[in-house]
């Protein structure tokens, strides 16, 4: 399920060194800043799927919302086909949503319950394409439902969201996103609320949209196995920072960053041998720690309090992004030249 590697043209959608801070109230009179996303750089290309993997609170959803234009970045820039996206009073222009669509996690909360499927799908057609003609609307709605395999289409079009199962609803949500004919689809945990037996249908549908329509896809998930199934490249986030990225097989089979390793090893894997499993469970009973507060993140590498390999430099200086070839990179002092070590050597 891998698209042929492409030469790197201009990405359809790119985040360049994007940072998002939220001001929050921290008790009476005092304010604090949540550093939700820090220096995120991400390219989405036509016909390719990038998986953004991380735990809750790692900034995945914030980044998706930044890319979707729901938030304005605190610094850095979002570029659509090379052109920086302008925001006015925290909003992008409507035209932006014509190219970039976001699918939410919860198919139960993202459809208007008072309207039939037909209405939910007609809205984007009217708003973004100015379709007014009834016959034309009916034809397009039918096409959309057929593309997401909700057939017979005319029957589904007249149902209310509550008459549909979770999987069917999520397909309507995808159909609605497709109605605007976007170039980029951002999926924020699009399958995590669905029943296990129907998740694959959804992944296969997303895969088809990528191959047949050449959509650029961002697949956000905490499930590494499903990321491996669908995507081409993986980017791992931890505590608001991107810490590793590269082609999926290499990243998952041989993680560079200790956090990626922890994440992969913690994922359920029935194929794991009995001995590996026992060793893993024995080791896992120790405290593996938890992600830090984003209001007051640790200095240096944000993973260092949990990292078994932490050195002095990790506690004081944030590791730079190190490219290790074959499209792989990481942000870890194990793979970067330690500035303190070099200075000692030269002395």
């Amino acid at each position: 399920m891998t698209a042929p590697p492409t030469t790197r043209p201009t990405p359809v959608l790119a985040a360049v060194d994007v940072t998002k801070h939220f001001a929050v109230r921290a008790g009476v009179g005092s304010r604090a800043v949540v550093r939700a996303v820090e220096g995120a750089t991400l390219d989405l290309h036509r016909g390719r799927v990038v998986a953004l993997v991380g735990e809750s609170g790692s900034g995945k959803t914030t980044l998706a919302r930044l890319l979707a234009g729901f938030y304005a970045p605190t610094s850095g820039e979002i570029a659509l086909e090379g052109a920086p996206v302008r925001q006015r009073r925290g909003r992008v222009e409507r035209g932006y949503h014509k190219d970039v669509q976001l699918i939410f996690q919860d198919p139960f909360g993202s459809l208007n319950p008072l309207h039939r499927v037909r209405h939910n799908l007609e809205r984007p057609l009217r708003l973004h394409h100015g379709v007014r003609d009834r016959a034309e609307l009916d034809r397009r709605v039918g096409e959309l439902l057929e593309r997401v395999a909700l057939t017979p289409a005319d029957q589904f079009a007249d149902k209310f969201p509550h008459e549909l199962s979770g999987g069917q609803r999520q397909r309507v949500v995808i159909a609605r996103a497709l109605a605007v004919e976007p170039k980029v689809l951002l999926g924020d945990e699009p399958i995590s609320m669905l029943d296990v037996s129907i998740r694959l249908e959804m992944l296969n549908l997303l895969d088809r949209l990528r191959t047949e329509d050449g959509l650029a896809l961002l697949y956000i998930t905490h499930d590494i196995a499903s990321a491996r199934y669908l995507c081409d490249d993986v980017v791992v986030m931890y505590a608001g920072e991107m810490i590793e990225g590269g082609p999926k097989e290499q990243v998952i089979a041989d993680p560079l960053h200790p956090y990626t390793r922890l994440l992969v090893e913690s994922s359920p894997d029935p194929a794991r041998g009995a001995r590996d499993r026992e060793a893993l469970f024995d080791a896992g009973a120790d405290d593996l720690g938890e992600p830090p507060s984003l209001i007051d993140p640790p200095p240096g590498c944000r993973f260092h309090p949990r990292c078994p390999f932490a050195k002095d430099v990790c506690r004081t200086q944030a590791p730079p992004r190190t490219d290790v070839g074959e499209g792989r990179w990481t942000r870890c002092w194990l793979h970067a030249t330690d500035p303190t070590a070099t200075s000692q050597e030269t002395e």
Binding site: M1, S165, S197, I198, E201, L203, N204, Y229
Partner: peptide
């Protein structure tokens, strides 16, 4: 069998999985 094959593998070679058609 369908349920077991609904979980993509973490390390084994990937093949196309279909899940279980229909809904509960």
């Amino acid at each position: 069998r369908g349920l077991r094959d609904s979980f993509p593998p973490l390390r084994a070679p990937l093949r196309r999985l279909t899940g279980i058609p229909g809904s509960p």
